[in-house]
């Protein structure tokens, strides 16, 4: 509403001076929005003139011309993750920001595409989640998981953005340290297409909606990396007979060694090394060891249990690049 009738007129000038070079885009000096005046804003222009006619002075005001600003449909998508997100048994969490760069309130449909050229593997989209509490961190049970089939942002005011998490599971067959990308695309719900395409009556305030330079659809890629671990278990045996040699005769002691080697960039959790006592042999009490430490046979504070029914040593969580060795002995009957 531009109703202030400002006066102050003086002389100098040329009538009908019209053609002004059209070039400089004025800075948005008085605009609160980087994206321009809000859709629905009325541009009202009125001119006033003062004059002398004979000995009297007078003033006259023109009619008011009014133009309504239509809605510009624009959107921006950015990837907020600076490094590839890690995927293991838990999904990778990719973080994007979707910004309404138009000048009217608008919601945007979301689509996450895991099939990108150059991917080491194509991830599986587990879910698309809005950062409901705007803290930039995926909070399971707090942030809103979008329903598949109706993936969309809420209505965003001009210049406002929402963070979107895309949770990506590793497919079977992905191997350690392989990378992949996922593209998140946001598209204006009112419509998109070639810049300048207009949707009559669909704009904020009853005006038209016009597709801006972004085509009202934008996307960004975020990367994930598989962090997996593999384990190999190698069993070996040494024999010591009563005669100081290595013959498997009754009374000889066989010491088994079980080397659990974890490789890869990930970790393995809940590992146990379990073995049975071979037929025809008897467990040697107190012979159970984990690396250099002797473990007691009983189910107590330490990591291992040993006895006639076999051995069970809890390794727990092992990171890639680590080898733990379990050893125990039996005597040939």
């Amino acid at each position: 509403m531009n109703t202030y009738l400002i006066p102050l007129r003086r002389a100098a000038g040329i009538a009908g001076c019209s053609l002004v070079a059209l070039s400089v885009t004025a800075p948005f000096a008085n605009s609160a929005h980087a994206t321009g005046v809000l859709a629905g804003t009325l541009i009202e222009n009125t001119a006033t003139a003062t004059y002398q006619s004979g000995s009297t002075t007078g003033s006259v005001t023109s009619n008011k011309v009014t133009v309504k600003v239509d809605e510009l449909l624009d959107v921006a998508v950015a990837t907020l993750s600076t490094a590839p997100a890690t995927a293991n048994s838990e999904p990778a969490v990719l973080i994007y920001a979707v910004t309404n760069s138009g000048n009217g309130p608008e919601a945007f449909n979301l689509a996450a595409d895991p099939k990108i050229s150059g991917n080491g593997f194509d991830g599986t989209i587990k879910s698309v989640v809005l950062d409901s509490n705007s803290n930039g961190v995926y909070d399971p049970g707090v942030d809103t998981v979008l329903t598949a089939g109706s993936l969309a942002t809420p209505v965003l005011s001009p210049d406002k953005s929402v963070k979107v998490f895309v949770l990506v599971d590793l497919p079977a067959g992905a191997s350690d340290a392989q990378t992949s990308q996922v593209r998140l695309t946001a598209t204006s719900q009112t419509g998109s297409g070639t810049p300048g395409t207009s949707f009559a009556g669909k704009g904020e305030g009853g005006g038209d909606a016009v597709v801006g330079l972004t085509t009202a659809s934008a996307n960004s890629l975020a990367a994930l990396i598989a962090s997996l671990a593999n384990i190999t278990l190698t069993k070996s045996a040494t024999i010591l007979d009563p005669f100081g040699t290595a013959k498997p005769v009754p009374g000889a002691v066989v010491t088994y060694s079980l080397a659990a080697k974890v490789t890869g960039s990930g970790t393995l959790d809940g590992l146990h090394v379990v073995d049975t006592i071979p037929d025809g042999t008897t467990y040697v009490p107190g012979s159970l060891k984990l690396d250099a430490s002797v473990l007691t046979d009983g189910a107590d504070g330490d990591a291992g249990v040993g006895g006639s029914s076999g051995i069970d040593v809890t390794l727990g969580k092992i990171t890639g690049g680590t080898t733990r060795t379990v050893a125990f002995s039996v005597k040939i009957n």
């Binding site: 400002i6 006066p7 008085n30 605009s31 006033t48 003139a49 003062t50």
Partner: peptide
């Protein structure tokens, strides 16, 4: 001494 003044609309 005809002076036409036009305030620019804020937008």
């Amino acid at each position: 001494n005809f002076v036409v003044t036009n305030p620019l609309p804020p937008a």
